[in-house]
């Protein structure tokens, strides 16, 4: 999805298109209307006394298409906005972060491939670390501390205090702790270890770079 016109600023006219944003918007709406019509092609429209599943979607698709057409017309007859610049870094990392969370929180399979269910313990930090790279100002150290402090906070809040059935860690983790520990005890110990790690990272790397803000303090309060 790259743009027709790079850069914003005073509208620069090229050719008959006077409002590139309207043009693009119109095209998108037309495409959407066409898609809806195509998707409902096999469905029954019914009659007024017993409307079929397709009646409303079809009318709506036509209406959406018409608004798209109107926008297209305006794009040539009326001055309007140019297209803004599209930025790829933000969306790509944000989406990657969310997807990483989705496939690791519990076992997920696409066809033959499947991911192990790693629980919040891994899914949370993954979302933060990958998503965090969406901004060019990223600092890995801060993200690590953020991940190591927010994740145990959520684990305790959701898994321990509220008893929500959100997967917290891979079942195997229990094997690393004494056998007579309950699931809750393991959860608390893991959270404590992560918090300690966050403090360690914070203290160990404090001198190297002047962080403008106190990360651990803010994050704990969310």
């Amino acid at each position: 999805m790259s743009s027709l016109h790079e850069g914003s600023g005073p509208p620069q006219r090229s050719g008959p298109v006077r409002a590139p944003q309207s043009l693009a918007g119109g095209v998108v709406l037309l495409a959407l209307g066409a898609l809806a019509l195509w998707l409902t092609r096999d469905l029954d429209q019914g009659s007024l006394s017993s409307m079929g599943p397709a009646m409303l979607p079809r009318w709506l698709a036509v209406a959406v298409g018409l608004t798209g057409l109107a926008l297209l017309v305006f794009a040539f007859t009326k001055d309007g906005e140019t297209l803004e610049r599209w930025n790829l870094r933000g969306p790509v990392f944000v989406i990657a972060g969310i997807l990483a969370f989705a496939v690791t929180i519990r076992p997920f399979s696409f066809g033959t491939l499947s991911t192990p269910g790693l629980g919040l313990l891994f899914a949370g930090p993954l979302a933060i670390l990958i998503g965090g790279y969406a901004t060019p100002e990223v600092r890995l150290r801060d993200l690590v501390i953020l991940a190591l402090s927010l994740t145990p906070f959520c684990m305790i809040l959701f898994g321990d205090l509220l008893n929500l059935p959100i997967p917290v860690f891979p079942q195997a983790l229990t094997g690393l702790f004494p056998a007579d520990w309950s699931q809750k005890a393991v959860l608390r110990a893991t959270a404590a270890i992560m918090t300690a790690a966050a403090v360690l990272v914070f203290l160990a790397t404090r001198g190297r770079r002047r962080g403008p803000i106190d990360v651990a303090d803010h994050s704990g309060r969310i």
Partner: peptide, 13 residues
């Protein structure tokens, strides 16, 4: 830069 990754994770959870 720190707030948005946190929001992201909370959205997911």
């Amino acid at each position: 830069r720190l707030l948005f990754p946190a929001i992201l994770m909370f959205c997911c959870i």
